[in-house]
């Protein structure tokens, strides 16, 4: 019971972290994370290799960030592009694996989501508490100002989007054992992450404090959000 709660809590907290970092650093609402989560489930079914899952996410995230940097001029354009990318993944999965709508895997690594969530938070908090933290806060605040003071915002954007995408695929991979895998599996997780992230943003905190608040609100909201996932 407690373990199930922890899995739900960390699943929601992880998705909230990914949504939040993408929005604060990349300045767009990454709606492809739901599709990537679902893709993780399919990878678990067809190629049960977590390294492959993480690498595919990394590659997708890099391509997504490059596409956004190249053709988008506003937060809405970038968000719509990421929505298109998310739909592309889902429909791609549906077309390629149509023989049966739901898939089930015969292993259950879902408890490892706790580890993935904890490591992700420690990593982000570590960055914000290190000398790099101030640079990250500047990027969160104002991209152009950060650029004017020597911060390579393009690189930070690409790294953030790529790592977030890798984490989303890995989370889907690890959660697959407790899910009926379908192209829309990730939407519940994505929506939970967006809701928690939006609630935390109301506190108007920056840096490590924001991410700690994100963790706390995920904990408080996990019981209600379980319905969605």
């Amino acid at each position: 019971m407690a373990l199930n709660f922890l899995v739900s809590f960390f699943s929601i907290a992880l998705m909230a972290l990914l949504v939040s970092t993408n929005f604060r650093i990349g300045k767009f609402l990454n709606l492809s994370l739901g599709g990537l989560f679902a893709a993780g489930g399919y990878i678990a079914y067809f190629t049960p290799n977590p390294v492959f899952a993480a690498l595919s996410g990394l590659l997708f995230g890099t391509l997504l960030s490059l596409a956004i940097s190249k053709i988008c001029r506003s937060v809405i354009e970038a968000t719509v592009l990421s929505l298109g990318a998310g739909i592309l993944i889902e429909r791609g999965l549906e077309i390629v694996h149509r023989s049966s709508y739901y898939y089930f895997v015969d292993f259950d690594y879902s408890t490892y989501v706790i580890l993935l969530g904890a490591v992700s938070y420690l990593f982000v908090l570590g960055i914000y508490l290190s000398p790099l933290g101030l640079k990250m806060k500047f990027v969160e605040e104002d991209h152009e100002l950060a650029e004017l003071y020597g911060i390579n915002t393009g690189m930070i954007f690409t790294v953030t989007t790529s790592l977030a995408s890798a984490c989303a695929v890995l989370a889907g991979f690890l959660s697959s054992g407790s899910l009926a895998i379908s192209p829309t599996t990730g939407f519940g997780y994505l929506i939970s992450g967006i809701i928690v992230s939006a609630l935390t943003a109301q506190l108007r905190q920056v840096g490590a404090v924001h991410y700690l608040a994100l963790l706390a609100i995920s904990f408080a909201a996990a019981r209600f959000m379980e319905v969605l996932i």
């Binding site: 650029e147 004017l148 003071y149 020597g150």
Partner: peptide
């Protein structure tokens, strides 16, 4: 050159 490199 992007602004951050001009800064450097």
């Amino acid at each position: 050159m992007p602004p951050h490199r001009r800064f450097r």
